[in-house]
């Protein structure tokens, strides 16, 4: 199953200390690296002319609850438009302190992808400019794609959020006041 792969070989030569594991299952080149100095590692992947991974395809995570230690893995897919090769990079993240460095300074597209991982898995990204939930709402409790989140879990009802200082609110407020005033005038007469 294991075949000698030029990209992985080159990576292992260059970053021997960084790479924990590598494989090429079904032709997908994969490396596992540690979270320390993540951004610098990606920068060198992006800027090395022999690798030239200029395109961030995807960021996601997998929860290996009870199967692997550490529990989470953040998975990056990179692509090189020029050399036409893909690489998968996996970063193990411990449950106690789920945090990795953000890639937003390298690719702006990492913004929403990292927000989604935060939303679904509760993994924080250090250095992200605006780490909010994206698909779910702020009041949502828990992280639904974690394996210990039951599929039939119900969420508590949340009160309506007050939105202030917007044009729409001011107008509708004025309309409401006008309406109340009119109704009041009618009932008086």
């Amino acid at each position: 199953m294991e075949r000698v792969n030029p990209t992985i070989e080159y990576l292992q030569e260059k970053f021997a200390a960084k790479i924990l594991d590598s494989h090429a299952f079904r032709g997908d080149d994969t490396i596992v690296i540690s979270g320390a100095g993540l951004r610098e590692f990606f920068r060198s992947l992006k800027e090395d002319p022999k690798l030239d991974f200029n395109f961030l395809t995807d960021i996601t995570a997998v929860d290996y609850l009870g199967k692997k230690e550490p529990r989470f893995e953040v998975v990056y897919h990179l692509y090189s438009l020029l050399l036409k090769h893909r690489l998968r990079i996996k970063v193990p993240v411990p449950e106690e302190d789920p945090v990795v460095e953000s890639l937003t300074p390298l690719w702006r597209g990492a913004d929403w992808l990292e927000r989604e991982v935060w939303d679904m898995f509760g993994i924080r990204f250090h250095g992200h400019p605006d780490l909010r939930r994206i698909l779910l709402y702020e009041e949502f409790q828990g992280y639904p794609l974690r394996k210990d989140y039951p599929v039939n879990q119900c969420q508590p009802l949340v009160p309506e959020r007050e939105v202030q200082d917007t044009f729409v609110d001011q107008r509708s407020h004025n309309k409401l006041m006008q309406l109340q005033h009119n109704i009041g005038a009618k009932s008086r007469s």
């Binding site: 299952f25 079904r26 997908d28 994969t30 395809t57 995807d58 996601t60 997998v62 199967k67 998975v75 897919h77 893909r86 998968r88």
Partner: peptide
């Protein structure tokens, strides 16, 4: 068990599936 990423060209761009099996 294993993991693959496979992409097709969807109507709006690269539609990729990353699948993990245990």
């Amino acid at each position: 068990p294993g993991e693959v990423y496979f992409a097709v060209e969807g109507g709006n761009g690269e539609l990729g599936f990353y699948i993990v099996s245990d």
